[in-house]
Design a protein around this nucleic acid. Structure first.
Length: 277
DNA sequence: CATATGTCCTGAGAGC
DNA sequence: TGCTCTCAGGACATAT
């Protein structure tokens, strides 16, 4: 499940496309229902052909490939990955970008579940179409005061609030559980009622965990979904203290047993001793 | 406006 | 063993 660290790893992993000229953008034959691609692939190919990649950036949980005045926005959602060749299999390759020249270079958008999307915009449309009304400040860039201000705006639980990309961009289900455990905050606590000192612990945990997860190239879960750009697994799953550890002893207090609850149709894991209501 | 719920999709794993 | 069923969750559409 690509969240900020996984998407950041994808961006860094394909940095070698910067400076290269695009030969062709295509959709390989695929037996599954096609993913959402806007505009049609022929138009994307036409607009990007012979353009040189000027940069790759992350926008929340999206990968943005800049070329000319265009921005190709890859949204992995649940099971999408951005790779340099070497996909886990060929049948789930949803988009391919071939580059001019040598060494041979090919970027793939691979997505097993097919919920991911591809969208080509003009650079100057990004704010209006992607950011405005949808994305708050990035989790790794937001100042502490604004973090507090935004989390004080909602009566929802802190876990659910952290997943709202309009409040803070980049945090997803896995890292939300991890950072609440690190900050010793109960996931069902009403966001607006959390004290400033507690929010400081959460803010610091968020920075530390996201940065560490990037250093580990993200979390690769048992389903194998999510790998880095070379199709190697990340290693942050070995650092998880609560996620997917239901019934196991808490690694912090060693007494509590990790519980799983469901909030907004998503699993939350926490230690009832470390994270008291 | 804020919040809650349903939906998309495939494959792994559980359960019978 | 082989089948069916449930579940995984990011982001958006729709409902409350």
């Amino acid at each position: 499940m690509p969240e900020l660290p996984e998407v950041e790893t994808m961006c860094r992993g394909v940095a070698s496309i910067i400076g290269r000229k695009i030969k062709e953008v295509s959709v390989p034959p695929c037996r599954f229902r096609p993913i959402v691609i806007r505009p049609a692939i022929a138009a994307i190919d036409e607009l990007l052909q012979n353009q040189r990649v000027s940069g790759v950036s992350r926008l929340g949980k999206r990968v943005v490939i800049h070329a000319g005045a265009q921005a190709l926005i890859l949204q992995p959602k649940m099971s999408g990955m951005v790779l340099l060749d070497q996909p886990p299999d060929d049948e789930h390759v949803r988009l391919r970008i071939d580059f001019v020249g040598k060494p041979r270079l090919r970027l793939l958008f691979w997505d097993r579940r097919g919920l991911g999307t591809v969208e080509l915009l003009q650079d100057n449309e990004i704010h209006e179409r992607i950011v405005a009304g949808r994305l708050g400040p990035d989790a790794l860039a937001i100042p502490f005061d604004e973090f507090c201000e935004r989390l004080r705006q909602t009566s929802r639980s802190i876990k659910v609030a952290l997943l709202d990309q309009k409040l803070i961009a980049g945090v997803g289900n896995l890292y939300a559980s991890e950072m609440l455990h690190a900050a010793k905050i109960h996931p069902a606590k009403v966001s607006a009622l959390i004290s400033r000192p507690k929010l400081k612990l959460l803010y610091d945990a968020m920075q530390q965990i996201l940065i560490s997860a990037i250093a580990h190239e993200g979390s690769t879960l048992s389903d194998g979904t999510y790998r880095n750009a070379l199709n190697d697994p990340g290693s942050y799953q070995n650092e998880h203290r609560v996620y997917d550890r239901k019934g196991l002893a808490c690694l912090s207090c060693s007494t509590g047993m990790i519980q799983r609850i469901v909030q907004a149709q998503r699993s939350t894991f926490f230690c009832p001793l470390c994270q008291r209501a």
